[in-house]
């Protein structure tokens, strides 16, 4: 299976991204609950792109290792980046007036979480979930 790329430019793209993610998760044999967690995580990541970077993309693809398989979701933008990543990972931190649950929440929904962001050079969040 190939990767799916969804450009995130307007709010309706958030819906398209999470629907694509759910479809891929279901195809990969994830349970309905796990597919919902994946779709919800994608929704949060896509919204962060709209809120903080205006545009970017969500890339999803299957993970196939010898002993387990899963899904990887990459949210990438060339926006302003995050000044203090450690602080952004704490509950309640937000510069856009939102609840600030985004990143810590996504971390809880998925199995693996990595973020690469520097001021002025965009943000890439990579999350993975393994099939149980």
């Amino acid at each position: 299976m190939d990767e799916t790329r969804v450009p995130i430019l307007v709010d309706i793209d958030i819906v398209a991204a999470r629907q694509n993610g759910r479809a891929l998760a279901a195809q990969l044999g994830f349970s309905q609950t796990d597919s919902t967690l994946i779709a919800t995580a994608i929704s949060e990541l896509a919204r962060n792109i709209i809120l903080y970077a205006k545009q970017g993309e969500i890339i999803m693809k299957p993970l196939n290792h010898s002993e387990r398989c899963g899904i990887v979701v990459v949210a990438h933008d060339d926006g302003p980046g995050i000044l203090d990543v450690a602080r952004a990972m704490q509950m309640g931190y937000s510069t856009s007036g939102s609840l600030g649950l985004g990143l810590p929440g996504v971390n809880r929904l998925m199995d693996e979480f990595a973020i690469d962001s520097r001021p002025g050079s965009g943000t890439t969040v990579t999350v993975k979930k393994w099939r149980r």
Partner: peptide
């Protein structure tokens, strides 16, 4: 609110 949606919401702290 569907059961799996409720599950995801609680994970998010909502």
């Amino acid at each position: 609110i569907q059961p799996e949606v409720a599950f995801a919401m609680v994970q998010l702290g909502l």
